[in-house]
Design a binder for these strands. Structure first.
Lengths: 229, 229, 229, 229
DNA sequence: CATGAATGAGACTTCATTCAT
DNA sequence: CATGAATGAAGTCTCATTCAT
């Protein structure tokens, strides 16, 4: 008779165990998708990376697509939660905006693999992915639009640009800077890719944290030089 | 007896014929990729759409990947050419910037399918696509960065944000607005997708041409209200 | 409760199981190659003959080429082993030679399908097959050449013909007789072939076992009539 | 009006022209088959080698198979003719046998490409090739068997081995030696193949012409040393 | 619950053959 | 007769998913 772990002895693992293994698979999928891309990644790659059997994946996820969606949900939940918390921690519209921006670039700097998956891989894929994407990014965009609208209502910001579109634009800046940084990092993008020859396109090895200031500057005053202010 | 060109006399299609069929295949691929996505699209779908046999595709392109890359090159060449022409037709940095922005949104409005492929589908796919992408978008970004740098050098614009990164940010705004518009259109995104439930995220049915003004406004003065101007 | 081996307990097939299925596929390939020829045989034919799914083949062999090579290796190993054993069981050079010859024709008589594949199909195919072929047949030829050389060294046989070439020649006789017999059998060659009209070419329905005597006679005394011996 | 060659003026080429082009295609096929093997060779390769368009092949041959068969017929006709002539030029059975053998090895030495195709490539291929092969080689074998039978009838040779089988055996020797020589030549076998490592198997760089003596010796006296003769 | 061997649908690609010029 | 672009049937191989152990 062999000695068994408590869980095995009890006949079935606790919910915690189940959740933990699910997370292990999600983490593995994150790494594999970041490295190979969604379509190129094989389910068995993910299984190997997670240290489980191929079939086990299907005990936790309905399909490869479901795995992708679950990963997306999981990461966006985290992102949306952090951003909401950051915004909630500030008082004025300007402070809220900067909190949003700073929190986002901070997240990218700290979890580049997750960011890579969100920024690059998760946008591909199958048609129905697009819906989930729109929905979850919608949350993020509404949070940001709310901050803008608040500032416009308070008279702090001009309402030349409707708040939802202003939010899109700011998000676009952040996203593009994130993309540039992610692809510019050593080992960024997929493995084995040769570095692009040009170096002067702002795409390589800048400090992503500074991006917060750039966005702040552009939103605050545009590119204009205000000599008399 | 009619006079024939040497090629016609020999019964051989002219170079023009060849190029025309190649273009027909590229156009078909554009539509199919826009509809199904690169990985999901089957070569035989493209052949059917182009009205040729499957094997014919391979007389013009080495592989499915090659077809994608060729499509990308073809469309980016067109885009880069138009943008460069637009910029060249303006004199001051501000005018050049607005020419760039206006030209881009105009292009999207007029050729949404092409835009969809460039904005959405062509960013996916295999690792080596990434390189091509970086290179060709780099051209576009360098053009824009040149305009910014010129304005900064002329003292028109602040150099708080380095020109290459400012270019990225402006591009990000445009790109995100384009994406929102493309996905928001009826029939935008892939067929068969259900419309996202939320309507207040700025993602639906706005006039993309107005985006030029929004970008102009944000770049010119940020979001700030200038009470004393 | 029965006692299981570790593998059985884990629900995993034993190495024996794996080897057995591999062999089943090799046997199926042998039959299909013998019937259709390597290039004409479809992987799915082999799968059907083996009673497995198409994809299963690729769990055991890297490619169709690999399957061919593996089959060749497997059969040549068997042949070389048997011949070496036969030779080792004899003492004088003459006895060794006859043992070699007898063992080979015996093998052909008992396993005509395997012989057909070795003698006919496995000599075709891709360029790299040729190398394997040369190497494995080389083993066989060296064994035979060794016997000849031994007899020449012992003064039993003339060294008019260098041993390696004498070995080639003897092998050629055996091979040609084997080929004639294999093609002459009912059902020999590929299915569906019409019987050649001529019957007097020695190619049909003789007893392959007698070939051993013929080879023995020719090697021993040539065709000469020795009236005075 | 342009000036035309006589044939063109006449509206159709002479039979000689047609035969000449057919031969050009056969020669090209011989080279391509020798280099790439029948199955691997593409019809368009042969067309290019022959300097004609792909479709032209089909004006002279019904199919790729037909081309192979025609090539085989053409070459075997030549071989059989030469051998028959050689035999006819000799008087005694022994002389006839040696004439046969000598003529054959001479042919190999002088036209190795043709020999390679006959000895190696033409034995592969489709099922119906086998019939043609049997038939044409049958001619050759019957010629040889006739010589043997004549010698046996004359009491020159023992009839231990029936003439048709003796013919097979002699042919087997020749064929195997030819094969060894062809594969052993530099550039023998298909291009790009690495040389087999072993050198002592008699397979490399011997003088094929000497093979005639070896066959003569073996047939005349076997391997036996005849001390008392 | 976990395993991983087996499945088999389906994709890309090749190439012998045709036929309009 | 000659051409060679076009055809499309067919084969190899991959990989998401299942299920017996």
């Amino acid at each position: 008779m062999t000695v068994h772990s408590p869980e095995a002895r009890a006949g079935r693992p606790t919910g915690d165990d189940r959740a933990a293994k699910r997370d292990r698979i999600l983490d593995a999928a994150e790494r594999v998708f970041a490295q190979r891309g969604f379509f190129t990644a094989k389910v068995s790659d993910i299984a190997k990376e997670a240290g489980v059997a191929d079939g086990t994946i299907y005990l936790y996820f309905k399909s490869k697509d479901d795995l992708l969606i679950s990963l997306f949900e999981s990461r966006m939940e985290r992102v949306n939660g952090l951003l909401a918390a950051a915004v909630a921690g500030a008082t004025t519209p300007r402070a809220k905006l900067m909190a949003f921006v700073t929190a986002y670039v901070g997240m990218i700097a700290e979890q580049p693999t997750a960011a890579e998956v969100l920024t690059i891989e998760l946008r591909q894929s199958t048609k129905f992915m697009r819906e989930y994407s729109a929905q979850r990014f919608g949350e993020l965009l509404r949070l940001l639009a709310g901050v803008i609208a608040e500032g416009q209502a308070a008279g702090v910001w001009s309402d030349t640009v409707p708040a939802p579109h202003a939010a899109r634009m700011i998000w676009g800046m952040l996203d593009e800077l994130a993309l540039a940084w992610l692809l510019g990092r050593d080992g960024g993008g997929r493995r084995g890719r040769k570095p692009p020859p040009s170096a002067d396109d702002g795409g390589r090895k800048f400090d992503i944290v500074r991006a917060a200031d750039w966005v702040g500057a552009l939103v605050t005053q545009g590119l204009e030089r205000r000599s008399n202010v």
